[in-house]
């Protein structure tokens, strides 16, 4: 049911959820599909405008790379940087085994 009805939506929510690394429940997928279809129908309004020759604007101000002098500066001590980790040992962040 969920698989077949997802084809009628503008967005393929299960696919996008995989890209975004979120396991969604079937109920969430169905609900978000309906809700986001409505949002997408609304935002399609911007297709009405002729945008020939208009430069895209990524930022409200002109942003340039700002680099500081290449001198070592004090940074967060390792212990504090690791303090919020859900799992850490020997000064490292621990994750499940990646390679068998």
């Amino acid at each position: 049911m969920a698989a077949s009805s997802s084809h009628s939506h503008l967005l393929d929510v299960p696919y996008l959820a995989r890209l975004a690394r979120i396991t969604l429940t079937l109920e969430e997928s169905e609900l978000f599909s309906k809700q986001l279809d409505r949002v997408l129908e609304h935002v399609a309004l911007i297709n009405k405008i002729d945008l020939t020759g208009i430069e895209p604007m990524a930022h409200a101000i002109s942003v340039f790379d700002v680099v500081r002098d290449d001198q070592p500066q004090p940074s967060l001590p390792k212990k504090e940087a690791l303090a919020n980790a859900p799992h850490q040992a020997s000064g490292l962040f621990i994750v499940p085994k990646v390679l068998e």
Partner: peptide
């Protein structure tokens, strides 16, 4: 680990916006 953490940790509005933004 990524997928379940994000599923359990984010609320509905955050998930909706991440999915629309990804799209």
């Amino acid at each position: 680990l990524y997928e379940q953490t994000r599923e359990e940790g984010f609320g509905a509005e955050v998930k909706r916006r991440i999915i629309l933004g990804t799209y």
